[in-house]
């Protein structure tokens, strides 16, 4: 079965997610504990990945940083999916000028540089994770809205939907039980690809110093910490590798789900 193929990208994703969720149990040290005597230690049994420029244990920071990065990325993606799907289904169902407006505005906004929005929020409310999340949600929902709106318009014309309308099915039931399940496969594919992009955006903005505040561990911020110590590349190698693995598996998963859906439906 082709479905087995999904395990290949799913396994590393779930493994990293599990490890980061278990950070309070698994991490050998407090991620923010300073130890000025043991700076830049090479990997050893005491510190499996070594220590950074303040003597903090890199493995603990990697695990705790993963909680921040993955948690925010998941939250942003879920929020944008909820908002986008709601607006998309609504506009697709209403059709006419509302659907056209959603698709036209997504045409314009999808190439809009979202750093502008991030900068506006940062100027008003200072640099913190909430501003960044809000700015990202405000630019990301449009993708979900576009996908769900397009599919809703196609679904609406199907005979089965017309028949359920004739039988007197309530519009809310129709949307939840007939339209939404039809959107779900495409939506989950978009979700995983968007999750990867969001994660790259979060770590990128944190790298620029627009995201988490310094003592907190985050994968992008860890690369920022390492940029002044290029002779000790181990400070940034692991967190970058983790980002790469998560984004690669999320993208592959999204592609596989779309392929699977296309094979069964077309």
């Amino acid at each position: 079965m082709k479905k087995k193929r999904l395990l290949l990208p799913l396994a590393p994703l779930l493994l990293l997610l599990f490890l980061c969720l278990m950070a309070p149990i698994l991490s050998p040290y407090d991620p923010n504990q300073l130890d000025t005597v043991s700076k830049f230690l090479p990997p050893s049994t005491l510190h499996p990945l070594g220590t950074d420029y303040l003597g903090r244990d890199l493995l603990s920071r990697l695990l705790w940083g993963g909680r921040t990065t993955l948690g925010y990325a998941a939250m942003i993606s879920i929020f944008s999916m909820a908002i986008g799907t709601f607006i998309g289904i609504f506009s697709g169902w209403m059709g006419g000028i509302i659907a056209k407006a959603v698709i036209k505005s997504s045409d314009i906004l999808r190439s809009f540089p979202n750093i502008v929005l991030v900068m506006i929020f940062m100027t008003f409310w200072g640099t913190n994770m909430y501003c960044l999340s809000l700015a990202l949600i405000l630019t990301r929902w449009i993708w979900y809205a576009r996908v769900s709106s397009t599919i809703t318009i196609l679904q609406k014309r199907r005979p089965s939907i017309l028949a359920s309308q004739l039988v007197g099915c309530k519009t809310s039931d129709l949307l939840i039980h007939h339209i939404f399940p039809a959107i779900l496969p495409q939506l989950s594919s978009v979700f995983f690809i968007d999750f990867g992009h969001t994660l790259l955006a979060i770590s990128g903005y944190s790298f620029l110093g627009f995201g988490v505040l310094p003592p907190q561990a985050e994968w992008g911020a860890m690369i920022r910490d390492g940029q002044n110590y290029l002779s000790h590349p181990e400070m940034m190698v692991w967190s970058g590798l983790c980002i790469l693995i998560v984004v690669l598996s999320a993208n592959t998963l999204g592609d596989y789900i779309r392929d699977l859906w296309e094979e069964t439906h077309i």
Partner: peptide, 17 residues
């Protein structure tokens, strides 16, 4: 798929190193 998933800033540092 590898190139589209790699964080740009990290790749930059690896290339510099």
């Amino acid at each position: 798929s590898f190139l589209s998933s790699i964080p740009k800033f990290w790749l930059g540092f690896l290339l510099i190193i």
